[in-house]
Nucleic acid binder design. Structure first.
Length: 460
DNA sequence: TGAAATGTTGGGGCG
DNA sequence: ACGCCCCAACATTTC
């Protein structure tokens, strides 16, 4: 009797350069097995989400495209809704699957889940095999000379660049082996309502591997200018690929290869951002406690005042600081926020409103299309000065200065704060108090800055 | 991947 | 001509 193998798609929703799929297909060729594919909408994760969720819609569209692509080669993607800890072992039992292939997810909860499933499968005499796919280097592949985790980004980056080579950048070929997929008629796929969600427009995010390809092609033409355009939210300077990296509708190897091939200051700066992503992923793998604790333990003791009214105003984009409000409103309306604005609003929440960075982290986790635990936690701890290689606590952004510097014409502010649109370029960054329908600043920056310095000093 | 406070310098007004 | 002050511009220090 020939056992089947199963490829479990998770955050790798593409049919090219796919580590687990490549290994499963090539292994199947030498043993003349058939390969099945499955995606599971994890009910344990989806249960806590609101009925309207752009990320679920993005995933749904991407899964649909993946399924169609498999259908086109005579195969299929089984799409289920439930708890993978129960479903995967049950599927393997039912379909006589001997080996499950999946790509590794190093988030603490995913590590725990995969460990449970591996044990369940093992008890049935079956295997779960995990492969590195979503990063170039993971876990402890980049360490200092003394075998320690890097504590500073710059030397980590240097080591990463020293270690990168054609082998780790090469694609996992899928297309030549597709005939190993089990031939089967297309099955039904649950629609969004059946898994508990209302439809929402995500076309503007260009979901799926086709969308990822479109966005990447567009960015390739702008990559050389990335270093001088990336900090201006009103300018189309960044790649907009983060959501695609999150769900694996693009290949990190292809992205890194292209950046290295193109070269120059723009491509190098962008590559550094990809390396930041890996820095934070390996950091969280080494330190899963960062989900709830500060990297610099002394700052866990800070007693933030946590004014709830100020937090609500920050969430809603009603702080009276135009650049902060425009950024928060963009997040609420689209699920996207420019990286420069993430730094500004994060600094404002922590250092001006004196609110625990975890509150902001949680809000971003709910709202960001590209939410990734490692990057979000790393970014917040960086801005809050509590993190690994974080900015020092006394480096406090002046929201008005940042606004003048990075949105000089007020274009971005005008787009999301229409009640300020009539103000001139000088007034728009700090409006007069008389503007209709726009709140007065809820705090005084100079005062709060001093208070933040005092608060952090208590923990020194 | 800051900003504010403080220190220094040098040009110009003015007695 | 000279000293003095003001203060902008720039540099350094501090948080």
């Amino acid at each position: 009797m020939t056992h089947t193998s199963l490829v479990w798609f998770r955050r790798d929703l593409r049919l090219f350069d796919h580590a687990a799929l490549h290994v499963a297909l090539t292994a199947a060729r030498s043993t003349s097995q058939a390969v099945l594919c499955v995606f599971i909408f994890d009910s344990t994760l989806l249960a806590s989400l609101p009925r309207v969720d752009r990320r679920v819609a993005f995933i749904w569209e991407s899964v649909r495209e993946l399924k169609q692509a498999l259908n086109q080669v005579g195969a299929d993607l089984m799409v289920r809704h439930g708890d993978p800890c129960a479903l995967i072992p049950a599927l393997c039992d039912e379909l006589d699957v001997a080996t499950v292939y999946a790509n590794r997810d190093t988030e603490p909860a995913a590590v725990e889940r995969d460990g449970r499933i591996a044990r369940s499968l093992s008890a049935l005499g079956k295997d779960l095999r995990l492969f590195k796919d979503q990063v170039i280097f993971e876990r402890d592949e980049i360490l200092t000379q003394s075998g320690q985790m890097y504590q500073v980004f710059t030397p980590y980056r240097r080591a990463w660049l020293n270690q990168v080579n054609d082998t780790v950048l090469s694609s996992f070929a899928v297309a030549p082996h597709l005939d190993q997929l089990e031939k089967c008629a297309p099955s039904a796929m649950p629609d969004l309502r059946q898994i508990g969600f209302d439809p929402v427009d995500v076309d503007y995010l260009k979901p799926g591997m086709s969308g990822g390809e479109t966005l990447f092609e567009d960015f390739c033409e702008r990559m050389q200018r990335y270093h001088e355009t990336r900090d201006f939210p009103a300018v189309k300077g960044v790649s907009y690929l983060s959501v695609h990296l999150r769900f694996g509708t693009v290949s990190i190897r292809e992205l890194a290869r292209t950046a290295i091939r193109i070269g120059g200051e723009g491509a190098q700066t962008w590559l550094s951002e990809l390396i930041w992503r890996e820095f934070y992923q390996q950091l969280l793998w080494h330190r899963p406690d960062l989900v709830t604790h500060t990297f610099k333990e002394k700052y866990d003791a800070i007693a933030f005042p946590n004014n709830r009214d100020h937090f609500s105003a920050w969430c809603a984009g009603q702080t009276g600081f135009p650049i902060v409000d425009a950024a928060q409103r963009q997040l609420n309306q689209t699920g996207f926020m420019h990286n420069r604005l993430r730094m500004i609003t994060a600094s404002f929440l922590v250092k001006d409103l004196l609110i625990d960075w975890r509150w902001g982290e949680r809000y971003f986790a709910e709202k960001l299309n590209d939410f990734d635990l490692a990057s979000n936690n790393g970014g917040w701890q960086w801005a809050a000065s509590t993190g690994c290689d974080a900015q020092p606590y006394f480096r406090i952004f002046n929201p008005t200065t940042q606004s003048i510097r990075f949105d000089p014409e007020g274009q971005f502010i005008r787009r999301y704060c229409p009640e300020l649109a009539h103000l001139d370029n000088r007034q728009i960054h700090a409006p007069p108090l008389s503007v209709e329908n726009y709140p007065a600043p809820i705090v005084d920056h100079a005062t709060q800055r001093v208070a933040a310095l005092r608060l952090f000093k208590t923990a020194e």
